[in-house]
Amino acid sequence: MIGAAIYAILSKDILYAVIATGVISLILSGLFYLLQAPDVALTEAAIGVALTTIIFIITIRNTVRFEDEHDKKEHIKTIEK
């Protein structure tokens, strides 16, 4: 979970960062379930994993995916390899 959080901060690709936050929410909802709070776990699973991630992904699709032009070029290079 901490690894996913650090990755979400450090990642230049916003799409990967959003998916990493989704992974954080998934682990967090499992943690809530283990701490005997199934209500909160259900909320976290529905809102954190599904809805927030998807709204962010739609927003990325409508805006830009990379923080600056340099990262975009790097990404295109890795795809072409």
Partner: peptide, 14 residues
């Protein structure tokens, strides 16, 4: 059971 209005509403929206 666990869950309620907020959770159910979110599931429907999904």
């Amino acid at each position: 059971s666990p869950g309620g209005g907020f959770q159910g509403g979110t599931i429907i929206a999904t």
